[in-house]
Amino acid sequence: MLEISDLRKRFAGGPDAPEGKVALDGISFTVRPGEMFGFVGANGAGKTTTMRIVMGVLQADSGEVSWQGRPLGYDDRRRFGYMPEERGLYQKMKVTEQIEYFGRLQGLSAQAAKKSATDLIERLGLVERRNDAVQALSLGNQQRVQLAVALVHDPAVLVLDEPFSGLDPIAVDTLATALQERCRGGVPVIFSSHQLELVERLCDSVGIVSAGRMVATGTVADLRGVESNTLRIVVRDPAPGWSDGLPGTVTVRGDRHILQTADVDDQEVLRRAMKAGHVEYFGVEQPTLTEIFKEAVA
């Protein structure tokens, strides 16, 4: 289990901002084995800073990252897989060599690194590109190589900063499948993304950061539960005044009346609507992660 508790970080100010900038103002969350944790937040909210601190690339001013109940150390981190925000690959190195090299650095034997690289190349659909220099690859393929580099040593934890940015839907699926496999194998996965539908689809739990603070964490269902659920009814050609006395708003579009309401007896509302006209839609509107996010950071 990976525990991040109360991370704080202030960046030294420059001439134009002498007091510096608070990047993290007490970030805490936990990722369990086999859990996929989506990290969302506006640009500059502190996602990258948090991940860099987890990976030891940056030092926190205070707070702690612990792994399996112990403070996270250098040797533990060697077993982590990391994908930094700005992609880092040797442009002139060939795909296979590159993946093998990083495998070796993370402690694999030459043979194990080779085997793992070959597997990943196949799984991520890079077979035809395996002998190309990275600079000759498309962005999507470079990203696959980057993910392979993070996965090559069968990491105990995955920390991925925006792994899906700039990818086409097919590449997104390939990457997502690879991540889900690892996750099912018991590896905690943290990734940040601005593609909230994707986070909603993939993640078991979500953390929303805003201005260096974790404003909401939990499963997507949990986060929804906090919000009030809205009832939405579409009635065609209703009798006038059918919704009088009900809370909420009615929008009229042509001959359709759309009622959005909450905190009412839904069965009573349905009966009234059916009596008034032809009910085309009746359902509880669950807020999307995008709506939850906007609400949370507002």
């Binding site: 860099r52 990976m55 030891g56 690339v57 250098y74 981190r77 060697r78 982590f80 990391y82 930094p84 925000e85 700005e86 992609r87 880092g88 690959l89 040797y90 442009q91 990083f102 650095l105 993370q106 402690g107 580099v149 993070a150």
Partner: peptide
């Protein structure tokens, strides 16, 4: 090259 492309971030998660 390593610093600018942030390869160094990956490298330094497994190297001193």
């Amino acid at each position: 090259e390593e610093k600018g492309s942030r390869i160094v971030e990956i490298l330094l998660s497994s190297l001193r």
